[in-house]
Design a protein around this nucleic acid. Structure first.
Length: 752
DNA sequence: GTGAATCATCTTTTT
DNA sequence: GATGATTCAC
C-alpha cells in the first residue's frame, strides 16, 4: 500500500508501534498528520478492520482531509474519522435512551445558548445587570468542561453569586432538556457520563473502536479526556499526538496536563518524539525557539531544521493599521508578481476585527483574498431563521427555534400571544408547537389563535414532507417559499438582495450536501452545520490569500505568513495579560503563528491602532523584545525597502532573497472573478457592499428532458428559479432522483 | 401588532 | 461600528 522508506526513524517508530498506548510528542511541521494517516494504513495492513479504528481530529476540515488521505492510500472505507463533537453526536444518537434524550435533539449554537441563559436568569429572578449572560454562560461552560453538574456545583457554591449561578445553571439545564437541546459542551459531557455510568455501553464502544487515535491531544479538555480514556481503557490501544507548546485553548477548558500526564495514565506507554521540522527555514525555527524558551511551564523540546535555506525575517512598524495593511498588500502583490502562489500566503491576526483593515486595502489594491470565517455565514439573521425552521421541523420540542420563527416573517403573532402560548405549553407540559396545534382551544389567545394554528399546520406539513431520505435542499426551498420568507424579502421596503442571495446560497449548499453526504438526513445536515467551524472554511486551493485568526491557523502551513498586530494589548491580548498562565498561552499563540511560515515570515506592528472606533497608541509586544526583533531594529536601523518592508536577520547578515523591488503587477484578467472576493463566509456590511456576480436566469421548467454527464438522461421534476443558484430536482432514467444546483451541475436541456 | 429610531454594550480566541 | 434591546409613533 505504501512504503515506510520515506519516513524518518522516529516517524517509523510511531507508525510501526504495535498494540498499547503511544504518545507522540511532535513539534510543528514534524509530519505528525502524516504519521497518523500512515499508522491507520499500517494497522489495516496488519489486519485490523477499518471499522475498528477511530481517529479524532481537532476540526472537521482536518477530519475530511484525513479521510481523503487514507482513502488515497488505498484503505477501504469504514474508519471513523471525526472530531470529538461529531463522534459524540453519533454516540448520543445511538444511545439516546440511556443518555435521557430524544435522538432528534437540537444542537444549540452560542446565540441559542445565550437566549436560554437569559431566560434562565430571568426565570430565577436574578438581575441581568449582576449576572451578565455572557459571563454566566462562560462559568457554566467551564463547569461543564470540568464535568461538574448543577447538583455538584450547588453543594460547593458558598457565596451569593455562586449560589445564584448554581440556580441559573440548574434552570438552564432544565430548559435545555425541555427543548430537547444540547449545547457544544453537553455533547461532550453527556457522552462522558454515558461512558462513566454504563459499563455495557463502554464495553460496546471499546469493542467497536479497538484502536483510538487522538490528534492535537494538548487541546483536549477534561470531558474529552474522559471520553478517550473511557473508550480505550479496556484495550489500551490509544495513540495520542500533540505538542504542549501549541496548546492554545486553555481558556476553553483544554488541560495541558492531559498530555503531560499521559505516561502516568498509561504506564507502559511508548513515547516517540518528533523534533525534526520539515516545514520552516532554520531562521524561522531559531526565532520560534527563542520565543518559546520564555515559557516556564514547559518541557524542553528541540526544533531541528531539515530545510537548509532561509530568508530574512521581516519585522516592521507602521503608523496605523491602514499603513500596515497597505504595505502588506504591496508586498503580496510583488510576491505574486515574482511567482508566489496566493494559496500559499496567509495573514494571521489575534482578533477577528483586525481583518477589516486588511480587507479594505486588499479590495483597493486588487489582492485576491478570502477570509476564513465559516461560522459567520450561519450567524446571519436570515440564515438563522431558515435554519430555525429546519430545527423545529426536526425537533418539535425546540421552543427556541419556534420562538424565533413563529412571527418571522411577520404574520401578526405578537409578543403577548407568544407569551400566552408559552404559558399554556408550560402548564400542560407540552411543547409550544404542540400547544400551537391546539391554539383554538386556548381561551387567552383570542384573535391570534387562527394564525398560530395556521403556523402549526404549516410546520406539520413540512415535517410530513421531511421523511427519511428526503432532500434537504428541496425542503429548504419549500420552506423559503411556503413560509412567506421569500415574499417578505421581495416586498420589503429596503433592498434585501443580500439576504435573498444568502438564502439561495444556503439552499445551494444544502443541495450539495444532499449529493455528497454519505447518509443524508435532516438531522445529519443540521448537526453538520451546527458543528461547522471557522477553520472548516479554509480552502487550500481557493487561489486567494487567506486571512484568519491565529487560532484558526492551527495545523496549517504557508510559504509566506504575515503575523500582524504585535502590540502590547493585542498579542498578548490585554485580557490575557493578567496572569502568567494566560501570558504563556499568548506566547504559544505567537509561536503557532511563527511556525506556520515555511520561508517568508513577516511580522508587523503599528503605533496607533483603532479599536472599536477609538484610536489607541500602542507599545511593541513584549514578545518582540524577547525574540530580539525590536531591540535588533533599534541597534541598527533596518534597511527600508521601497515597499516599506525592512529585513531582519537573527544571528547576523542573512543571505535571504531580497524581493522588495517594486514590480509592476497586472492582474491576469481584471474581469476575472478571482479578483473579486466576497460573499460566502463573510457577513460584514463592508463585504456586502462589494460587487456581486451577475447570474443569468435559468431556463428549465418542469417536464423538460435533460441530460447529465454522470447520471444520464432524465426529466425535470421540480424547478426553483434562483438564477444560477436555481435548484433542480431531476428524475433520472436510471431510477435515481437528484436535486442539483444549476450553476454547479452540467445539466443540459435536450431539445425535443 | 408593526416598524423606525435611538440607546447601550460589546468582542479575544471557538468546538 | 454592529448588534440587540428599548422606546415611541402609528
Amino acid at each position: 500500500m505504501f512504503s515506510l522508506d520515506s519516513l524518518t526513524v522516529s516517524q517509523r517508530e510511531a507508525v510501526e508501534h504495535k498494540d498499547g498506548a503511544l504518545l507522540v510528542i511532535a513539534g510543528p511541521g514534524s509530519g505528525k498528520t502524516r504519521v497518523i494517516t500512515s499508522r491507520i494504513v499500517r494497522l489495516i495492513e496488519k489486519g485490523v478492520r477499518p471499522y475498528n479504528i477511530c481517529a479524532i481530529t481537532f476540526t472537521n476540515k482536518a477530519a475530511e482531509e484525513m479521510r481523503e488521505r487514507v482513502r488515497a492510500m488505498g484503505v477501504p472505507p469504514g474508519t471513523q474519522v471525526s472530531t470529538f463533537h461529531s463522534l459524540c453526536v453519533r454516540i448520543l444518537r445511538q444511545y439516546a435512551e440511556a443518555a435521557g434524550i430524544d435522538p432528534n435533539f437540537s444542537i444549540y449554537s452560542d446565540a441559542d445558548q445565550k437566549k436560554c441563559v437569559k431566560d434562565a436568569i430571568a426565570g430565577v429572578d436574578a438581575s441581568s445587570d449582576n449576572f451578565q449572560p455572557a459571563k454566566v454562560l462562560n462559568v457554566i461552560s467551564n463547569l461543564k468542561n470540568d464535568l461538574i453538574m448543577p447538583e455538584d456545583f450547588k453543594k460547593t457554591a458558598n457565596d451569593y453569586y455562586q449560589k445564584m449561578v448554581a440556580k441559573i445553571y440548574n434552570r438552564y439545564q432544565d430548559m435545555m432538556h425541555t427543548n430537547n437541546a444540547l449545547d457544544f459542551d453537553d455533547l461532550l459531557v453527556k457522552t462522558a457520563m454515558l461512558l462513566r455510568d454504563y459499563p455495557e455501553i463502554r464495553e460496546q464502544l471499546s469493542e467497536r473502536f479497538k484502536y483510538l487515535l487522538v490528534d492535537e491531544y494538548q487541546d483536549t479538555n477534561r470531558a474529552q479526556y474522559q471520553i478517550a480514556k473511557g473508550i480505550a481503557i479496556a484495550h489500551g490501544n490509544i495513540c495520542v499526538t500533540g505538542d504542549p507548546d501549541q496548546s492554545i485553548y486553555r481558556w476553553r477548558g483544554a488541560d495541558i496536563k492531559n498530555i503531560l500526564a499521559f505516561e502516568q495514565d498509561w504506564p507502559h506507554a511508548k513515547i516517540v518524539k518528533l523534533e525534526e521540522n520539515f516545514r520552516s527555514s532554520p531562521r524561522i525555527l531559531e526565532l520560534a525557539d527563542k520565543l518559546i524558551a520564555n515559557n516556564k511551564q514547559r518541557k524542553e523540546k528541540r526544533l531541528i531544521p531539515t530545510i537548509k535555506a532561509s530568508r530574512d525575517i521581516s519585522c516592521n512598524v507602521y503608523d496605523d493599521e491602514r499603513g500596515e495593511a497597505g504595505a502588506i498588500a504591496d508586498e503580496i502583490l510583488s510576491l505574486i508578481a515574482a511567482g508566489a502562489d496566493p494559496n500559499d500566503i496567509a495573514i494571521l491576526y489575534r482578533t477577528n476585527s483586525m481583518s477589516r483593515s486588511i480587507e479594505e486595502a486588499f479590495v483597493k489594491k486588487n489582492v485576491p483574498y478570502i477570509i476564513v470565517r465559516g461560522v459567520e455565514f450561519y450567524n446571519r439573521k436570515e440564515i438563522r431563521d431558515m435554519v430555525a425552521y429546519l430545527k423545529l421541523i426536526s425537533n418539535p420540542a425546540d421552543n427556541v427555534a419556534l420562538d424565533r420563527i413563529i412571527n418571522t416573517p411577520a404574520r401578526g403573532i405578537g409578543e403577548t400571544s407568544i407569551k400566552r402560548l408559552e404559558l399554556y405549553a408550560a402548564e400542560k407540559g407540552i411543547s409550544m408547537l404542540h400547544a400551537a396545534g391546539q391554539a383554538q382551544t386556548i381561551d387567552s389567545l383570542k384573535a391570534a389563535a387562527t394564525k398560530i394554528k395556521e403556523f402549526a399546520n404549516m410546520i406539520d406539513g413540512f415535517a410530513k414532507a421531511a421523511v427519511p431520505g428526503c432532500s434537504v435542499g428541496k425542503l429548504l426551498a419549500d420552506v423559503y417559499e411556503k413560509s412567506g420568507m421569500h415574499t417578505a424579502l421581495i416586498t420589503s421596503k429596503e433592498s434585501q438582495e443580500d439576504a435573498m442571495g444568502n438564502i439561495e446560497e444556503l439552499i445551494n449548499s444544502a443541495a450539495l450536501y444532499d449529493q455528497s453526504a454519505e447518509e443524508p438526513s435532516l438531522f445529519d445536515y443540521l448537526q453538520t452545520i451546527s458543528l461547522y467551524s471557522d477553520s472548516d472554511a479554509y480552502d487550500p486551493d481557493s487561489g486567494k490569500v487567506s486571512l484568519m485568526t491565529l487560532h484558526a491557523a492551527k495545523g496549517l502551513e504557508f510559504e509566506n505568513a504575515f503575523v500582524i498586530g504585535l502590540e502590547d494589548g493585542i498579542l498578548p491580548h490585554e485580557r490575557s495579560a493578567e496572569n502568567e498562565k494566560e501570558l504563556e498561552e499568548e506566547r504559544r499563540l505567537f509561536f503557532v503563528g511563527i511556525t506556520r511560515a515555511k520561508m517568508g515570515l513577516y511580522i508587523s506592528r503599528v503605533l496607533n491602532r483603532t479599536i472599536r472606533g477609538q484610536m489607541f497608541r500602542s507599545m511593541p509586544s513584549k514578545f518582540l523584545y524577547e525574540t530580539g526583533l525590536v531591540s535588533g531594529l533599534e541597534r541598527t536601523p533596518a534597511p527600508q525597502m521601497d515597499n516599506g518592508f525592512s529585513r531582519y536577520a537573527p544571528g547576523g547578515a542573512g543571505a535571504g532573497r531580497v524581493y522588495g523591488r517594486s514590480v509592476e503587477l497586472q492582474m491576469k484578467d481584471p474581469k476575472s472573478q478571482d479578483s473579486q472576493v466576497y460573499k460566502v463566509g463573510r457577513a460584514s456590511t463592508f463585504a456586502a457592499s462589494l460587487p456581486k456576480i451577475n447570474v443569468t436566469a435559468g431556463s428549465f421548467k418542469k417536464g423538460d428532458a435533460v441530460r447529465h454527464p454522470k447520471h444520464g438522461a432524465g426529466v425535470v421534476k421540480e424547478y426553483l428559479n434562483l438564477g444560477a443558484n436555481s435548484v433542480i430536482t431531476v428524475g433520472f432514467d436510471n431510477g435515481q432522483t437528484k436535486t442539483l444546483i444549476q450553476k454547479s451541475s452540467e445539466l443540459e436541456k435536450i431539445e425535443q
